[in-house]
Design a protein around this nucleic acid. Sequence first.
DNA 1: GTCTATAAGAAGATAGAC
DNA 2: GTCTATCTTCTTATAGAC
Lengths: 185, 185
Amino acid sequence: MPRISNKRDRLIRSADELILRRGYKQTTLADIARDSGVPLGNVYYYFKTKESIARTVIDARIESMQQLLIACSIHPDPAERLLAFVDFPLQRQQDIAEHGCPLGTLSYEIRRSDSSLTAESSELMRVTLDWCTQQFQAMEKSDPQSLALQLIATLQGMSLVANALNDPSVVAGLVARTREWICAL
Amino acid sequence: MPRISNKRDRLIRSADELILRRGYKQTTLADIARDSGVPLGNVYYYFKTKESIARTVIDARIESMQQLLIACSIHPDPAERLLAFVDFPLQRQQDIAEHGCPLGTLSYEIRRSDSSLTAESSELMRVTLDWCTQQFQAMEKSDPQSLALQLIATLQGMSLVANALNDPSVVAGLVARTREWICAL
DNA sequence: GTCTATAAGAAGATAGAC
DNA sequence: GTCTATCTTCTTATAGAC
C-alpha cells in the first residue's frame, strides 16, 4: 500500500506535460489516463477530482521552480545568481517556442477559469518574484521590487512572444539583452 | 435583410468580452447567447460554428489594434509614437489586472488549442511588432527588430504579471520604466 | 429571420465486479 | 488496488415550426 505509488507519479507527470502542451481545460482525464497508461476509472483512486490533479501539478511546478532558484543561489555574487536564472530558458528554447512558459501559461489560464486554483498559481509567481527581489536587494539597488517585476515581465513576455511567433531565436535574443541589462545596472 | 445586423454585432461584442474574461474554451455558445440576448438556436444563423465566431473576434482585435497604431502614428516623431503606444495600457490598468491583455491571452490560448486559428492570432502579434520595428527604424537604431521584440515582450509580460498578482499598479510601474527605456535609447 | 426543442457527442465522475 | 461499464451533465450543433 504505497502512499506515493508509481502510478500516481506517472499520472502527475503526464498531467504536467499535457497541461503544458494543451492547457488545463483542453486536457481531459482520458488524455491523462491514456498517456500515463492508467485506466480511466483508476485515476479516481489517486485523485478525487480533476482539480486536485491540477493542484498537484501546480505544487510540482512550485517545487521545481524552487529547485531552480536554489541551484542559482550557489553563486556568491547576486548578479551572477540572476544571470544564471536568466540563462535557464536557453536550455528550453524549442520547448518555449512550442508551448510557452510553464509558469506563464498556467497563470494566464488558471486566473481566467473560475476555479479555486488562483491562489496556488499566483504563489508560483510570487516565489519567483521574491527571489529576484532579494538578489536586487543584495546588489543594493534602489527599488529592487520594481526591478524584479521588470525582469520577470521581460522573461514572461519573451516566452509569450516566442510562442506566438513559434520562433525559438526570440528566446536567445532576449536573454542576451536581459543579461546586458543586468550587467549595466 | 441586413448583411451586418444588430444581432450579429451584439454577438461579436459579447463573444469578445467573454473570451477576454474567461478564455475561448471556457466561453460557451450559451454564454454568448445569453449575454447578447440572442436565443441559442439563432446564433447559428449568424455563425456556422463556434470557431467562426472566434475568427471574427480575432479579426476585430486586429482591426482594433490597427486603429490604435494609426492613432499613435499622428505624432511626427517616432519616439513620441512609441511613447503614445506604451501609454495606452495606463487607461486599462484595472482591466489588465483582472483579465490580462486581449492580445497575449488570446495568443497563449489559441496557440495551444489544436484549432486552425493559430495563423490568425499570430498575425495580431506580427502587426504590432512590425509597427514598433518601423518606429525604431525611423529612429535609426541598430537592430530595430530586436528592440521591437524587447518592447512587446516587456508589455506582454507586464500584463501577464499584473494579472497573476491581480495588481493594476504593476502596469503603471512598468509603463514608467519602459518610457524611460525608450527615452534613454 | 427567429426561436424552441432536441439530437449527438464530449467529459467528469461513480458503481461495483474482481 | 484495479478496471470495465455506465451515469450525468454540459456543449456544440441541427431540425423544423413559425
